[in-house]
Design a protein around this nucleic acid. Structure first.
Lengths: 205, 205
DNA sequence: AAATTGATAGTTTTGTTAAAAAAGTCAGGA
DNA sequence: TCCTGACTTTTTTAACAAAACTATCAATTT
């Protein structure tokens, strides 16, 4: 019985992997069930044997991706020597996650306004983990006596996360929405984030 | 000659006012030149006598709005007693500006990715004025010996403004990164910005 | 000449509908 | 239980006509 389920799980994984490649390369709407089935040399009907429909398949892939990301965060949880280190880790890991899977998220851009609840659920988990990581780091500093205790740690972390993500390139000229930052911009952003961290952490003490 | 131009200017103003009301109430795309002309009891063709086309008309209104906003900032320039006051004034004025003209900016939401250069030009002016106001406030505090400069003042202000713009809605649940904030969320965002100010200003001292 | 308009040309948006493509189902076979 | 080909239903696409809107201009008034 468990051998059977193992086989099923293996095939499920194969399907998830093939789907991920398609979604990543072509996006949700430009990927057909026939194509995924073709990549795996199986019939389309078999896909529907393993997954109820296309969007459920997509969300299963999404869940897997989110799981990997969460694992990265949780492995590091509580292993920081100071606040700056924690914040930098969070920002870099998040950025990497977004950039590496950029095309995968076209589903988000497409449905923009009303995404399925399952998506929000996953996003909620991610956000929770991020907040947990950073509040943990702050609390740790509080216990060490490096900063004074604050009441609304979560709110502070949320503001901090938002602020970090708001940092963009290009001094007085407004931000270009969809263009990826190139190397010189990455350094500029990095330096500005360091400055924000310095000021913000000082403001917490 | 100047009497003639006065008359023209008055009529231009009338057109700008009527256009502003339409744009504010219905947005750019749901406003027609016929409707504006109708409000003013003039022919549509006359609008084209005063303004080259619809988008130029819109941008003329925009320029006027930006001018009012800039004037508010400049009137207060150098009249602050402390840093927090200056930052609060900036954020509150900006918030009021956005809230009061929220529907007017649907043009931005519509064209999101590629806006005309003229728009960027106006936004650039606003950004410049904001930076001028806040750098002035910081310099003033530095001269009074109330704070010690941690870095280039302009850089600090840019980071602050970026951080402000990064503030988004959505506690632990939805994180609509890609969509424009909608009206109900503006107050929540405003509150989070106030928190950011509190911490940021403290971090500068 | 400057200001104004009705008529009209040119362009974009909005249905409408038929064909194509894709999602999703099912009876039945290994 | 796993799998498929054939089938049905839903969604997307394409083509095109009608409507709405922008923009122009010769003609008229002030």
């Amino acid at each position: 019985m468990s051998a059977v389920n193992d086989q099923q799980d293996i095939k499920r994984e194969k399907i998830l992997e093939a789907s991920y490649q398609r979604f990543l390369h072509y996006g949700y709407s430009k990927t057909t069930m026939n194509e995924i089935a073709g990549d795996l040399s199986m019939s389309k009907a078999l896909l529907y044997y393993y997954f109820p429909d296309k969007s459920e398949l997509y969300m299963a892939v999404m869940r897997k991706l989110a799981g990997d990301y969460l694992k990265q965060l949780e492995d590091k949880l509580g292993h920081f020597t100071d606040l700056r280190e924690a914040f930098l880790f969070q920002v870099n890991t998040h950025h990497e996650f977004i950039v590496n899977n950029y095309n995968f998220f076209d589903f988000f851009r497409l449905n923009e306004q009303n995404l399925p609840d399952t998506i929000w659920e996953i996003v909620g988990h991610i956000r929770e983990a991020e907040i947990k990581l950073l509040t943990g780091a702050i609390q740790s500093e509080v216990e060490k006596g490096n900063i004074k205790p604050v009441a609304n740690t979560i709110e502070i972390v949320e503001v901090f996360l938002d602020a970090l993500h708001g940092i963009k390139v290009g001094g007085s000229l407004p931000q270009k929405k969809l263009s990826f930052p190139n190397k010189e911009h990455l350094d500029e952003i990095h330096n500005k984030r360091l400055l924000l961290i310095a000021i913000f952490v000082k403001g917490l003490k």
